[in-house]
Design a protein around this nucleic acid. Sequence first.
DNA 1: AATGAATGAGCCTTCATTCAT
DNA 2: GATGAATGAAGGCTCATTCAT
Lengths: 208, 208, 208, 208
Amino acid sequence: MIAEIKVKPKVESILETAGEIFAEQGFRKTTVREICKRSGVNLAAINYYFGDKERLYLAVLKYYRELAIQKYPLTFGIKETDTPEEKLSNFIRSFICRFLEEGKTALFGKLLAREFTESTGALDVLVEEFIKPTFIKLSSIVREIVGKKSTDQKVELCAMSIIGQCLYFRNARPIVFRLRHKEGYTDEDIKEIAEHIINFSLKGLLNY
Amino acid sequence: MIAEIKVKPKVESILETAGEIFAEQGFRKTTVREICKRSGVNLAAINYYFGDKERLYLAVLKYYRELAIQKYPLTFGIKETDTPEEKLSNFIRSFICRFLEEGKTALFGKLLAREFTESTGALDVLVEEFIKPTFIKLSSIVREIVGKKSTDQKVELCAMSIIGQCLYFRNARPIVFRLRHKEGYTDEDIKEIAEHIINFSLKGLLNY
Amino acid sequence: MIAEIKVKPKVESILETAGEIFAEQGFRKTTVREICKRSGVNLAAINYYFGDKERLYLAVLKYYRELAIQKYPLTFGIKETDTPEEKLSNFIRSFICRFLEEGKTALFGKLLAREFTESTGALDVLVEEFIKPTFIKLSSIVREIVGKKSTDQKVELCAMSIIGQCLYFRNARPIVFRLRHKEGYTDEDIKEIAEHIINFSLKGLLNY
Amino acid sequence: MIAEIKVKPKVESILETAGEIFAEQGFRKTTVREICKRSGVNLAAINYYFGDKERLYLAVLKYYRELAIQKYPLTFGIKETDTPEEKLSNFIRSFICRFLEEGKTALFGKLLAREFTESTGALDVLVEEFIKPTFIKLSSIVREIVGKKSTDQKVELCAMSIIGQCLYFRNARPIVFRLRHKEGYTDEDIKEIAEHIINFSLKGLLNY
DNA sequence: AATGAATGAGCCTTCATTCAT
DNA sequence: GATGAATGAAGGCTCATTCAT
């Protein structure tokens, strides 16, 4: 029946298209005209649904964040019964997947990465709601591994070393591909990268 | 003699100012108007000297790259007589300084970082002339440390782990500062970060 | 009974709100959005009830004209038994009150004043149905005072001199307040103005 | 010679055209597009020369004010040797001419009148620099006529009565023409109006 | 009868670029 | 060689209006 063909609500369609374009071109370069055109809606629609370009951008960020969290919950697939080393491994695997995999969730990573160099004011919320919790989670795992003797300062630096490695493969993608003469990560690549970071980091944490 | 007072050529003045603004605001947000105003030159000067905004940007990149290389040669302060571990230490210290220190050279780091997310076509040259040599240098050091048994693939991953850590502290600056409630790195901070990465990485490289 | 609580019809609610906003901001600056919002009706209601913004405006003008006439009939509180001088005095007092008093009726004065500088096509009707009768009334009073010797031309000029004075205190309000460093007319002010105009005009009419 | 044909500077051309349109349609209704089109300049010219629409408007006001003052100096053709009555007569004649005559100077009157009902923020300056001086001038003449016994308050009201009459014939123009079935004032009309107001007002001022 | 959703036209402004001198 | 004057293209946004229900 015709009635069953439920059209994807216009709002969602705009959010998705806008997300792609924002991720690809950045906030400034992106024009609302293009978003509307590619979404098949009127130029005034963005004003109608979101108020203005900036609030659309914030909505996009929120939308993709939800999507990302839904697929990769902030627990990072960690069970309380895991050993500290297992926890770290799971964290890294989950983190890597979240950001390196292609698809909608990777898009959030792209948007996030853009905020680092071209902050639009949305960064504060993102840090508070997304990055900080992740960082705290990782720090607690690191603490379990290095034990109580280490200073908080050192734990923090170690956590950053781990995050830094993971993000490099996502942020420096254009570089990596140029060095490797490739055009994308295969699932195999991703797995290999994750295992490497796990191995490298676990050793790095020894005797801290 | 009056004649000897050589005014800094207009071109150079534009390059410097433009670099600051590009680094601070990114390519798109930067307007030629602002560059001209802050350089004290006519609005048409940029088109006259450089053709257009994009070619000015490329010139800026080139200019600051020269400056950076001049201050921190691509040898990274490494002597052939150093032990492999010393070489790595020196490399990391040099790399960290190059990108974390404030001043004109750090500016190149900023510009570079922007290219990652907001590539303007200049990236190819930068990779070839700047990033690749750096990466090859680091890889050869890693190779010395892990020995000949390891695969090239593994060496490459290790090199990336090291670069990733170093760059995190520069690219994720806004995050780091938000997490630490600070506003910049002191010389002490930079030193501490460098030593941490050296320590973490040397252990990470064990038994590869 | 519930049924007896007769809600003020939506149409009237719109007319009142619209009148206030039109008077305050003028036709162009006023947006249908604001009218709808402040009236608590749907954005489409105005087009539904009135056709478009302009026809709403005309309806508003008509609505407030009725209200004004209802409160201050076009007789201007003049009795046929009054002496000509009493008639003029009453006319001026009534006219001044009509336009200087605050409240809904003054609102009509505001709308009218706007039509002078920002005519929307409604002026013709207003002149015919409202201004002309007033002017004819005043002219007949003036004629009674100056006697039959004077020309119609002169009578007309005198009537205009009187109207001009009255309107000045309403149209030039922003100026008057700036000159006097006040923010509105008190009842005392209005009375004083009326008496002044009566006095000034009666003398002005002598020997015409 | 071609060289002698001195083109009217573009800026002035814009000011003139803009003045006409602003006077005719008001600030809001006027579009920069139309101004540019009728001035034969590019759409961006207004931004280039004036910054934005509002600053263009202020420039227009200033331009026409200068023109008006140049033609009708603020002395109002009054000599110190005149009797008070002559001074008032000259003031009124000058004032009437200034605002009723057709042409560029009348345009300033139009713009001024608009500010009364559709103030754009420029009113403050206009009051201070133009209206207040005029009012003070008139008040001093009135004072000379009524003598020292009268209160300042009464002098002020009388001055307003005079101004009110004069302005009525300009602001209520559309009404006057509709009542008289005419389409403009002839020089004869203007003269007659002036003499009427002089006569009416001089008598009105008696025994104050 | 009444409305929430959606639209089209148009406006002001900005910006890189060009042109005449 | 260098610049002040001027421009064309495009962008974000606002607003009255319409349409499907």
